[in-house]
Design a protein around this nucleic acid. Structure first.
Lengths: 309, 309
DNA sequence: GGCGCGCCACAACCACAGGTTGTGTCAGTA
DNA sequence: TACTGACACAACCTGTGGTTGTGGCGCGCC
């Protein structure tokens, strides 16, 4: 199916006759006739009945019309999504299963008119910041591990998410029925977090956490995806994992897993929105306002933050 | 934007490299390369970063991908809407503001997977029936004014909607505060229904109604659309109109209009679904079942039907 | 009723978009 | 260092899709 033909079809419907549509499209009447004939041949049905006084739609044409308009709208949206200078707000999230992605979904629900493109750069803070600075993305969510004075001049950050943690255990685990657990208590148990590559900001965070409370966090083992991890934990009496940044959302209900909040203090993984101060995109303002309004209230529970937080 | 190029882009993403995409599309690798280069030039951005080990998406490519998929889905839907042999169920309604259209919306809500095309043939019962017989549309909603034995052999009908009536008056009208009104009472008031051309099935119905109860139904006056009609009635102490078949739905709230049900007896405008008995479209069965389930219960109020009803 | 007018379709022609084959380049690998 | 796999560039050719020119066909107007 040829989009130019579809465009011509819609123009012909709007104009009521081929000649005017041709003028509107700056082509000849014969070209319009040809395009529509080709579209009709392609679809296998007649779209217009031709008369000496113009044309009018057949039933098939009538049926096709709203689909044709939708097709052109979809084209316009696709084009606008990447066309430099007027594209939708583009926000990088580290993974589609973490808090920022969920927050962006909520934002979209509240502001359905604001075009939003969520991408995953698969980069660390520094690379993501470089992308923001270069304008490849308009904003990114990350834990900011460097001091504000070491940031590039145009870059701004605000802490927008305080991610709490829960211990995830199977029904046979010693802590299965605990209401909460303290980091100190965790020192006596093995915590398994496979696939957390050294050098990433998450690994750094959990290293800090382990050092602060004397935890043993085990990173060995291949990663077969969340499903496999959850199944193993559900089966085991010893294995436990920390849920929060990585796996907080999209729980499969099929496992009998217990989620025990970590408290006294509650370790927090602080995430910031990172953007360029001179980015004029109007939707960026709206996103920042929304995130500020959603900022989790400072509750009076005791928290633990990493040194850079 | 060229849909073949978009299709190629998606194929290349799915395949992970141009060569395999080329094989999947039965073209050469060079053609894939050309198509994608053309698309990139058209959009003004790079979609892939090329390496010697294959390709991967740029941020722009990542952004564009879901839009591209949506575009192809829209194309498939547009195609399916008219493609002979496997098109969506096509139902003719007399107007988009009447009960059948609303009923079809409900049907779509209940069965969102069933593709439905609502068209308006702008034809009387006979022409609409001919369209059903010819297969141009799969079904139509109409008042059936001819006896069953005079119908074409393959045509089937069932009464699916009993449309009641309400008198529509402004706040200064004598009946503005009546709880109900009888047809006999209406004989003392002028009823204004502009734009109801003689010879149409609605006009026939209201002629029968007027004759049965001695009403004066005034058809004069130009039609400036529903808005103007409602504004006039809201302002007048004498004008009233019957709402039901024509104007039951999509009330503008901006006028202080009263709706007085007509009862004892309640005039009913009976509408039927009309279809071809040998139409094998599976969705037709679903629509008929739905309409039967929604069939308004036979209440014990006294009703009036036209002679052919 | 014949004639002109408005509108669309068909025909001939031409340009270039888009395909193919053949070759070049480059990075990782044996 | 040569080989392999993957994409790009070049030359060439076919056919899509544009243009101009012309014909057919209702409808309204003398």
């Amino acid at each position: 199916m040829n989009l130019d033909a579809v465009r011509t079809f819609v123009a012909a419907v709007d104009a009521g006759q081929f000649q005017d549509a041709a003028a509107a499209l700056s082509i000849t009447q014969q070209a319009v006739s040809k395009r529509i004939a080709a579209l009709e041949k392609d679809l296998g049905v007649r779209l217009f009945t031709r008369t000496a006084r113009g044309t009018h739609l057949t039933v098939d044409g009538q049926t096709f019309l709203p689909h044709a308009r939708e097709l052109l709208r979809a084209e316009a949206r696709a084009d606008a999504s990447v066309r430099p200078g007027r594209r939708a707000l583009r926000v990088d999230v580290h993974s589609r299963r973490t808090a920022p992605a969920v927050l962006l979904q909520d934002f979209h629900r509240v502001h359905p008119r604001i075009e939003l493109d969520v991408v995953t750069l698969d980069a660390d803070v520094h690379a993501a910041m470089a992308a923001v600075e270069a304008g490849t993305v308009d904003a990114t969510f990350h834990a900011v591990t460097v001091a504000a004075r070491h940031l590039p001049a145009a870059i701004r950050t605000t802490r927008v998410i305080d991610e709490h943690h829960e211990l995830l255990v199977g029904p046979r685990h010693a802590l299965a029925n605990a209401r909460t657990v303290t980091p100190a208590q965790l020192a006596e148990h093995r915590i398994w977090m496979p696939g957390m590559a050294p050098g990433t900001e998450w690994a750094d965070y959990y290293d800090e956490l382990a050092a602060a409370f004397g935890l043993t966090i085990d990173r060995v083992g291949p990663v077969f995806g969340n499903e496999a991890l959850l199944a193993e934990i559900a089966d085991s009496a010893e294995l436990a994992t920390l849920a929060g940044v990585r796996t907080r959302y999209l729980w499969p209900d099929s496992y009998d897993l217990r989620r025990v909040p970590v408290r006294d203090p509650a370790p927090i993984y602080p995430m910031s929105l990172i953007w360029r101060d001179d980015n004029p995109h109007p939707a960026l303002r709206a996103l920042r306002d929304y995130l500020n309004s959603r900022r989790t209230q400072a509750s009076d529970i005791e928290v633990w933050l990493p040194p850079w937080g």
